[in-house]
Amino acid sequence: MANLVARRNRAGEVSSYQVRWREGGVRTGEQEAERFDDEDSAKVFKDAVDEAGQHWPPGWVKGKGYIDPTAADELRFRFDRWAVESVENRTASKRYKQQRIRALEMYMFPTFGNCDIRSAEHFSKATIGAWVNKMLKTKVKRGSKIKDMSPETLRGLHGLLSSVLKEAVVAEPPLRDRNPCDLTRFPSNDDWGISDDESSDDMEFMTPEEAAGLVECFPRPSDRMLVRTAYGSGLRWGEISALAARHARNPRPGEYELRVTRAWKRVPGEECTWDRRSRRRGGGRSSSRPGCGKSSSTTASPRWGRTTCSSMTAVAAGSRTRRSTTGGWRGLLRPRSGG
Rank of each mutant, 00 (worst) to 15 (best):
R178Y: 12
R178S: 13
R178Q: 08
N179R: 01
P180H: 08
C181G: 00
D182P: 01
T184I: 15
F186A: 11
F186E: 12
S188C: 01
S188G: 10
D190G: 06
D191H: 08
W192K: 14
G193M: 05
I194E: 12
S195P: 00
E198F: 05
E198P: 02
D202L: 07
D202M: 10
M203E: 13
M203G: 06
F205H: 14
P208N: 12
A211E: 06
A211L: 09
G213R: 15
L214G: 04
V215S: 06
V215L: 06
V215G: 04
E216W: 06
E216Q: 10
C217I: 02
C217W: 02
F218R: 05
R220H: 14
R220E: 14
R220G: 05
P221Y: 04
P221W: 07
S222D: 11
D223A: 10
R224M: 03
R224Q: 15
M225D: 07
L226M: 15
R228L: 15
R228A: 03
T229H: 02
A230M: 14
A230Y: 05
Y231T: 05
G232W: 00
S233A: 09
S233Q: 05
S233V: 01
L235N: 10
R236Q: 10
G238C: 05
G238L: 00
E239P: 04
I240C: 01
I240L: 13
A242T: 02
L243A: 05
A244C: 09
A244F: 00
A245K: 14
H247G: 09
H247R: 02
A248W: 11
A248V: 15
R249I: 04
P251W: 09
P251D: 07
P251G: 08
P251K: 14
R252T: 09
G254A: 12
E257Q: 15
R259Q: 13
T261Q: 07
T261D: 13
R262G: 00
R262A: 06
R262V: 01
R262M: 00
A263M: 06
W264Q: 01
K265V: 04
V267S: 12
P268F: 10
P268T: 12
G269N: 08
G269H: 13
G269M: 13
E270L: 11
E270I: 08
E271I: 06
E271R: 15
